[in-house]
Every structure is written in C-alpha cells, then in structure tokens.
Design a protein around this nucleic acid. Sequence first.
DNA 1: ACCTGAACACCGTTCAAGT
DNA 2: ACCTGAACACCGTTCAAGT
Lengths: 184, 184
Amino acid sequence: MPTPAKTSREALARIARELVEASGPDALTVGAVANAAGIKPPSLYKHFADRAALLKAVEIDVLRELEAHIRAGTAGTTPKARLKSMAHAYRDFGRAAPDRYRVIYSGNAFIDPEIRAACLFAAQPLFEELRAADVPDDRVLPLSRTIVPFLHGFVLMEIGSAFNLGGDVDEAFEVGLETILAGL
Amino acid sequence: MPTPAKTSREALARIARELVEASGPDALTVGAVANAAGIKPPSLYKHFADRAALLKAVEIDVLRELEAHIRAGTAGTTPKARLKSMAHAYRDFGRAAPDRYRVIYSGNAFIDPEIRAACLFAAQPLFEELRAADVPDDRVLPLSRTIVPFLHGFVLMEIGSAFNLGGDVDEAFEVGLETILAGL
DNA sequence: ACCTGAACACCGTTCAAGT
DNA sequence: ACCTGAACACCGTTCAAGT
C-alpha cells in the first residue's frame, strides 16, 4: 500500500519560488524546501531530479509571470507609447522583487529547451508590438536585441545599486528609452 | 620563530582568478584555492576574511583589466568611431572569457566602497570619451546609463546563449550601437 | 606571523528499507 | 508510489595547538 503523498511537485515549486523571492537564490536549498513542505530532504527527489531542476521550475514560473505583467502594463494608442509603457512594466517587474528578477536570464542555461521556450514566450509581447508598429520583419530581431539588452542591463544594474553616482535614474531610463525608440 | 609563509595574498588572488576564469564562480572554493597554493584551507583565512573577500578581489582585478582592455581597444579620430571601437572592445572582453565577465557587476555589492571604486575606474574611459565628444555635462550620466546597460545586457545575453533565434548577432550589436549613438 | 589537524554545521545526493 | 533514516563527499569556517 503506497504511503499518501504529503506534498506535490507544484507545492514544492511554489515554496521554492517563495524562498527565492524572499531571500534570494542561495536560500533555495533542498533542506529548506523539504522542511517547508513537511517532508525530509531525500523525499524531494521523488518530485525533482535535483536542486537545479527546482531552480529551473522557478525560472520558468517567473518568466510566465513577467509575460503577464508586461501584457497587463502595455497601454496607449501610438506604437511608441505602447512600447514605452511595456518597457516601464518590465522595469517595474524587476524593481518590485529584485531576487525574483535575478533568477531569469541567469546562468547559461538558454540551451535548455524549456527555458528557451519560456524566454520566447516572455518575448512575444515585444515581438507583437514591434510588428504592430510596422517594423519590417528583418528589423524586428535586431531591434529586439537592442531593447531587451538595454532593459535587462538597466534593471540588473539598478537592482544591484550600480547607479550610485547621483542624477535622476528615472530620467536616465526615459532618456535611454527615447534614444532607442527614436527611429520609430 | 614564525613559520615561513608558503603563499601570499596576491598569489591566492591570482589562483582564485584563474579558477573563476577557467571553470566559473562555483569553482572558486576555499579548498581548491588553498590546495593550488600548497596550503590547508584554514590557513587561507590568514590572508582573506572569507570566500566573499576572495571573490571580491577577483572582481576588482577583472574590472581593472576591463579598463585596460577598453583603453587599448579605443581607436579612431571621430568621437563616434572612438565610442564604437570602445563598445566593441567591451563586447570582446566578455566573449573572450564568459566566466571572467560574469563576476563583474554581479550581486548587489555595489555598496561596497572598493567595488564601487573599481566600477568607477572601469567607467572612466567612457566618461572621458563622452566629454571629448562635447556631450554636455548633464547628459554624460544619462547617456552612460543608456550605453553601459546595453553593453552589459548584450554581453550577458550573448555569453548566456540567449540570442538563439538565428539572425546575425554581430549585425544586431552594430544596429544597437548605431541607434544609441545616433544623436552624437 | 603563518600553518596545521580536528571539529562543527551545513550542503546536495544516494540508497536500502519502510508503508 | 511516496516517504524515511542513515550515510557519503563536500562546503565554509572556527579554534586551539604547533613552529
């Protein structure tokens, strides 16, 4: 007779997610997750292959949430206004929970097909808006590769307190955005 | 009578640096560094407060090297040409040794005064070129905060294999650079 | 002054044994 | 089918003891 399951893959992923968001990736230990789920560490391996698989689940979850946050935050009538509000939504997502943001696009795990798919999913809103803005097909990718690195780099540096030389950081973001979207 | 020193702070930092560059930050363990230096792990604490201090020394070292690499790679007569060559030098520095690049601007340790100073040092070449390009004083900071995030984000994504949708990545870098420097 | 062995708490992970 | 205790190799770190 099988012992009743005390937890589930989903519950464990949720706990892992909360640990990361509250205290950073280092707080995501197999012991802490198991403990919060009311099981012993070895039992966790019936649900996830290893700690990396747990972290991967968190990353995918966060990418899904980012996509939803971006869609919800996109507003305006002109293409440029919509792209700007999208960029602000992206930045706000990072600032709202730095340790949540840090888990995405981290490491060199983009080769993993599931991570890759999740990144692609999160990038869809931008692709759609660029096409809606009548950006030619062969310019969508290069332009995305200007916008996303700027956003990613800006957010990482901001949540890492890298902008510590004074000046208005909000204004700098606006200037950068305006510069990049000037051609539209 | 004091026992003769088998190693030094500098030698340990160099070993740490090599471990990170060759196998990533996770390879930087107190045991591995001590072993390579011919001492036992506890002895390392006579030279560095803890593993974090060792990693910090590596980060500062890499930032110094980045500054030198940028200066050496900056060429051209027009301001825009010089800024472009500078950006290419930055990107090349990251691509040449991804695990070396990953240690800089990582974590949220910008509050640390030594890291802060090293980051400032590495940013000097850009500030100087922007001033030489007659960019008004109050625009140097916002413009830097457009260029550096783009470069940092681009390099991180590139070494993380994030640009895996096809297309010419070199061309994308050029497009992004051209877009950002268009106003000069 | 620097190095060492022994020890501690913690980490991820495996595995045989339980139900 | 899922959970457990015991065990392993490793990690960072402390400390008393050596020279």
